[in-house]
Simulated assay, not measured.
Amino acid sequence: MNSGKETFQKKNIAPKSLFYRFSQLMGFLLGARFFVAILLTFALYVSTFFLFNQEESLRNFVFDFKVHGIIFCTVLTILAGGIINQFYDFEKDHVVKPFRTRIQSFIKQKYFLYVYLALSIISLGVAWFISRNVFIFFLVYQFFMWFYSHKLSRILVLNNLTFVSLTLYPFFGMMVYYETFSIKVFLMAIFLFFILLCVDIVKDMLTKQVDKVFGYTTIPNFFNTKTTKIIIISLLVFTMLVSMKLILRTGISGFMSYYFSAGLFVIILCIYLLLDYSRRSKFLSLNILRFWIFIGIIAMLLSGIEGNL
């Protein structure tokens, strides 16, 4: 009788234990923004080889371990930044992202901090091994990652500008490393900067009330909805002008020219959606802009492959 009871208990314990371990893994991946880090890594490799690297062959690029080391340090820093950000935003995420917070609850917060410290130290260690300048570059990056989560994310305008700047910081580093300074690269950087800025402000519109409760002073909860929409639409119109400049004045060709041309219609669609006051329209415009950024990475990849054929 007891033997049967013990067998029944073992059968029930195993699945729970497996589910618990899986939940811990997913909690860590979501907490560290692992999937965002993968996308940024892909974007870094594509932009580095096809945009910033103008002279090096594919073979030399593959065996350029310094570049791979810098990208590796970038990935670790992004993962560490995601962890420290969720640590400071834990209460807010309980309301905004209940499912993700529930999964993350399978891991104690102190373990997230341990991993944050480990990732930061490994990143700085590898950076020091590459060069002193690279070490300073990542030391500054990590400091502002922490300072953004700790303080700047609650300050009006600075929260949006810092978030976008930190997202683009690794790409700026690669541009400096390869000394790729041109009007085309400059305009593409401005285009991406304003698209990301619009994404961040629209995201803040969706979390307006929660941000106000937890002391985050964002553009949507400082100004009224009408003023916020005017700001976003003005930024999108400016982004359209940058796209037109890229198409007409820089001689951009291939898939990238199609991307920026089609982007004019995508931005017009987002402006139309933002004129509506429904939450659904804001959510839809947010995801269209996010998706269009991803399409831009694919377009750059295809354009680069086309140019090398």
Rank of each mutant, 00 (worst) to 15 (best):
S3M: 11
F8V: 10
K10P: 03
I13V: 15
F19C: 03
F19K: 14
L25N: 09
F28Q: 01
G31Y: 06
A32T: 02
F35M: 04
I38V: 15
L39A: 15
T41Q: 06
A43L: 00
L44A: 15
V46G: 08
F49C: 05
F49L: 07
F49D: 01
F50K: 01
R59A: 07
F61W: 09
V62H: 02
F63C: 06
D64F: 06
D64V: 01
V67G: 01
V67Q: 03
H68A: 02
T74L: 06
V75D: 10
I78K: 14
I78Y: 08
I78W: 10
I78S: 12
G82K: 03
I83M: 11
I84T: 08
Q86E: 14
Q86P: 00
Y88S: 03
D89I: 12
F90Q: 06
E91W: 08
H94N: 11
H94C: 06
K97N: 11
P98F: 06
T101M: 09
T101S: 15
Q104W: 00
F106K: 12
I107R: 05
K110T: 12
F112M: 05
F112S: 08
F112P: 00
Y116P: 05
L117T: 05
I121T: 12
I122P: 00
G125F: 10
G125I: 15
A127R: 07
I130N: 06
N133A: 02
V134K: 13
I136N: 03
F137I: 00
F138I: 07
V140H: 09
F143E: 00
F144Y: 13
F144V: 12
Y148E: 08
K151E: 13
L152Y: 11
S153V: 12
I155A: 08
N159T: 14
L161R: 10
S165H: 06
T167S: 14
L168N: 06
I183V: 13
F186Y: 10
L187D: 05
I190A: 11
L192N: 09
F193E: 07
F193G: 11
L196M: 15
V199G: 05
V199C: 09
D200Y: 04
M205L: 14
M205V: 01
Q209A: 10
D211Q: 04
K212D: 05
F214L: 02
Y216R: 06
N221H: 08
F223K: 13
K226R: 14
T228K: 10
K229E: 08
I232H: 11
I233Y: 07
L236T: 05
V237P: 07
T239N: 09
L241K: 01
L241M: 14
L241R: 01
V242H: 11
R249M: 13
T250H: 09
G254E: 10
M256T: 14
V266Q: 07
L269K: 04
I271F: 08
L274T: 02
L274R: 11
R279H: 09
R280I: 10
S281P: 09
S281E: 09
K282P: 00
K282T: 00
L284I: 14
L284P: 03
S285A: 13
L289D: 00
F291S: 12
A299Q: 06
L302T: 02
G304Y: 08
E306N: 10
G307H: 13
